[in-house]
């Protein structure tokens, strides 16, 4: 009789232990996810470089999309309070190197013969979609550095074609992407490991999910280059890193 109970207990106990261990592990992950962050703003000092207008008259489909709102280059976009848009911030030193890629699948859209967003930050192996909303055919032609290990491609997307889904295999800051049919169309893929963020139109950013530790944060701007800052992130709190790029 007794041995019967013992046997049952012996069966339940390991299961209990497993569940508890699982819960502990999970809660650790939850802790890490809700862990530290790095936040700040990126600003431009001095005069902003002149952003030339884009003449799309070659393709009436494109020029029509900008009838009321003329298109301009987007290399250096300065928003309110001199905030710099489209700056990518990522951790260049201090990571373990085992970070899993983000599971989000961002979209790189072709809209009015421009790229939205102009700069798309990604993790290595993170999937992303290239979509088109234009009634003209685009070709998407990323040109990675041959030495970085990424393989370039060149595919056209006719109107209403299904999205192209792909990812990058190696870290590379940054891969230019262009459309040859509309030579003014120009954007970037910034492929990094670990958490990253891109500044909004006010120049502010927040890198989420940074485990506690000391890091070097790099801010990358396509025309103005890179800047770095050292930060220490405590668990559950936000470290601050502001950057200022100099205009010409």
């Amino acid at each position: 009789m007794k041995s019967h109970y013992v046997r049952k207990l012996a069966a339940v106990l390991p299961a209990l232990v497993l569940v508890c261990a699982g819960a502990v592990l999970l809660s650790q992950k939850v802790n890490a996810a809700g862990g530290g962050s790095i936040t700040g703003t990126v600003k431009l000092s001095g005069t902003a470089p002149h952003m030339k207008g884009i003449d799309m008259s070659k393709d009436p489909v494109c020029s029509k999309a900008h009838d009321t709102n003329p298109a301009k280059m987007e290399n250096v976009l300065v928003g309110s309070g001199d905030g710099l848009e489209n700056v990518v911030l990522y951790i260049s030193q201090g990571l373990t190197g085992n970070e899993a890629p983000s599971s989000q699948e961002p979209t790189f859209a072709q809209k009015g013969c421009m790229y939205t967003p102009h700069v798309l930050a990604l993790n290595v192996d993170q999937k992303f979609k290239v979509t088109t909303e234009d009634q003209t055919t685009h070709n998407i032609h990323p040109l990675p550095d041959p030495t970085a290990g990424n393989i370039g491609w060149n595919k056209s997307q006719p109107p209403a074609a299904p999205p192209i889904e792909t990812s990058w295999k190696n870290q590379e800051v940054a891969i230019p992407v262009k459309c040859n049919i509309h030579p003014w169309m120009h954007g970037w893929f910034v492929v990094v490991k670990g958490p990253y963020a891109t500044t909004d139109d006010k120049g502010s950013y927040t890198i989420q999910n940074v485990p506690a530790g000391s890091y070097t944060v790099t801010a990358w701007q396509e025309d103005l280059g890179t800047q770095t800052a050292k930060v220490t992130v405590a668990a559950g709190s936000a470290a601050k890193a502001d950057f200022t790029f100099k205009g010409k």
Binding site: T137, N139, N154, K155, S156, Q157, P158, P159, A160, A161, P162, I164, I181
Partner: peptide
Amino acid sequence: TAYPIPGLHLLSGTGAPGNVMTPEF
């Protein structure tokens, strides 16, 4: 031009997304 040609993707998956021909294809 915009009409999908059924089965075209069999000839080239990337050349004919959704069976519509790309310019390169």
